[in-house]
Amino acid sequence: MNIDGLPLVKPPYGTITAINLDKGEFVWQIAHGETPDVVRNNEALKGLNIPPTGQETYNIGTLVTKTLVIAGEGHVTTTADHPRGAMLRAYDKMTGKEVGAVYMPAPQTGSPMTYLVNGKQYIVVAVSGGPYSGEYIAYTLPSAGE
């Protein structure tokens, strides 16, 4: 539901929540995803300080490791920090604090996964959306000396 393109519902539009299954309590909850362009650049909201709203997501899966929760964004945004595209974000599993993000040319689809080859860790994520056809992207850190 939106009025002239601006969502009617109050943000956050999308969250990631860590639940303690022993107690059934929320350990942390964060807005996941860059504030959509239609909100961040909206004339009606000019001058207001809008905290990160997260994004209404569709079929975005998470990857959980020993220390991290990794999930990409489902919306294309264009910000001062990155060109038209989406971010793959990593959060501290215990606190929900964002600890890193890398750029993707299109939104994530499905879930990221990770694997180890010859001592090198990779993260693979499927992306597509809008006119961008489906692709797999693999990320890794440069080897020592590279």
């Binding site: 539009y13 362009d37 994004q55 209404e56 997501t57 919306h75 264009t78 959306g129």
Partner: peptide
């Protein structure tokens, strides 16, 4: 993917009807 709602609008925002049509 959905053809309505936030993600659809965001993913085509700033492009043209020609891009969507093609």
């Amino acid at each position: 993917p959905p053809l309505t709602g936030g993600a659809f609008l965001a993913n085509w925002n700033g492009l043209t009807m020609g891009d969507l049509f093609d």
